[in-house]
Nucleic acid binder design. Structure first.
Lengths: 251, 251
DNA sequence: GATAATCTGATTGTCGACAAACTTACAATA
DNA sequence: TATTGTAAGTTTGTCGACAATCAGATTATC
């Protein structure tokens, strides 16, 4: 008697949340973007009720902020956030290698195949000098890691951290900006796993994350003309950045 | 000119979420509890709108599950969850000691004082054999650790993990159940910090968390085939975003 | 001329209501 | 007697509307 997985249809709230997450990830809603509920609800083809519910969820995930009576805004990450997020990632991701190496051989091969595919995507993107594609492959590489290396909770948590990482990139530079070393570093991850060298994997990931922080903080947004200033001005920034206003309460 | 912290009034949603969190923590809403929206909204004195928004937030935090068309239910933790949560805590909490030790001397003293106070609370509770008070002090001890050892994000994340830990206790035993060794272990934490021995602190916390898992899983409460199991089966976390349907596009 | 007070327009926060969906109970049939 | 089909009842999911609130602009005052 084969056991069937329970059917689970996504609710409207799920759909909206996912749609918004995508928009944040692909850059169509850059950090600092302020949106009105009515307008956004109309665009999504839903009423304000479910939209507001989805907003609460994304707020809990740290992607959105809800300034009182000002709709919603995409969170702007500060250098503080960059360090924070990467510190957390550094606590978790290096360990994932060890976990993956304890998997049955068959599954382990699958993981390696999937990771290899993502690395190939990265290489192709690098060749085409397509920073966006490179970033996407990067995201998926680490998602694969999270999916296989841990539980659902862990995968979800890391997934959020990864999207936040993307937000860091957008917040620090104003376009996709990915370093070339990135691909080489990820080749190293896969090699370490293939060699079943958990220690080495751990060390490499650690180094990678530290490098990422340096790269992200190296160029502290020289806020030059155009777009950036407009957005920055929209967020009543100076005394207190918008983001600080409405962080979810509680410890 | 003293810099004033911006006022932040809690929104209704914040209030509701906080109230629900409290109820979960103090055991008045044990795992598996199923609640109807209308009834609960009436009890809280709000309408269903804000309540539903708060539900989404707590769902994102992993405290609630929202079975379709069945209102809301307090999450029931499985042995899997127990391991998972403590694994995550074990990645983070041991490091907090090191961080606290890098604080300025004055603040460090404050931390030690606060931690000491919580330990005293634990001792008093133990003497009175008051498991609930002991659990509360435990919670606050680790909250202090989180508050001083990291960023807001980290404190929030750990706060959630701690509440989930409490849910684990309720799910495994159905009443407050705290081991006696607990107090001694925490005395050890404080001593290690007082001695500025980060290594030792790390090791002790690690041991403590492993012990907790053992204690929680030692007596797997025979999950009787009732409500809670059905609900759990219905909502095993979030599905991978493979199944994304399309939103009804713009009216 | 600059600061303060007032007004207005727009948007949110909240609520009540309706319809669809689901559960449960009951009845009918094999 | 067990199983399937049917129907009623309850609850959710969603929407539309109203009022309080706030931001921005305008006017008045020192």
């Amino acid at each position: 008697m084969g056991r069937l997985a329970p059917v689970r249809r996504a609710s409207t709230v799920d759909l909206i949340a996912e749609r918004l997450r995508e928009a944040v990830v692909d850059g169509s809603l850059p950090p600092g973007t302020v949106l009105g509920e009515a307008e956004l609800a109309y665009q999504l083809g839903v009423s304000r009720g479910p939209l507001r519910e989805a907003m609460q969820r994304l707020t809990a995930e740290g992607l959105l902020v809800i300034p009182r009576r000002r709709g919603l805004a995409v969170r702007t990450m500060t250098p503080e956030d960059v360090r924070d997020i990467h510190w957390l990632r550094a606590r978790i991701e290096p360990e994932l290698g060890r976990r993956i190496l304890t998997l049955p051989a068959a599954e382990r091969r699958t993981v390696l195949a999937e990771l290899g595919a993502e690395v190939k995507r990265m290489q192709r993107a690098l060749k085409k000098d397509d920073a966006r594609a490179l970033g996407d492959a990067y995201l998926d590489f680490h998602r694969v890691l999270a999916a296989w290396g841990g539980s659902l909770r862990l995968a979800r948590m890391l997934g959020t951290l990864l999207i936040e990482t993307r937000l860091c990139t957008f917040s620090m530079f104003e376009h996709f900006e990915v370093h070339r070393d990135l691909v080489a570093e990820h080749v190293g991850f896969v090699e370490a796993l293939a060699a079943e060298d958990g220690e080495r994997f751990e060390a490499l990931v650690q180094v990678h994350l530290e490098a990422e922080v340096r790269r992200l903080l190296a160029e502290p947004e020289d806020a030059t003309e155009d777009e950036s200033d407009r957005l920055l001005a929209e967020t009543p920034g100076e005394p207190q950045p918008l983001d600080r206003l409405d962080l979810p309460e509680g410890l």
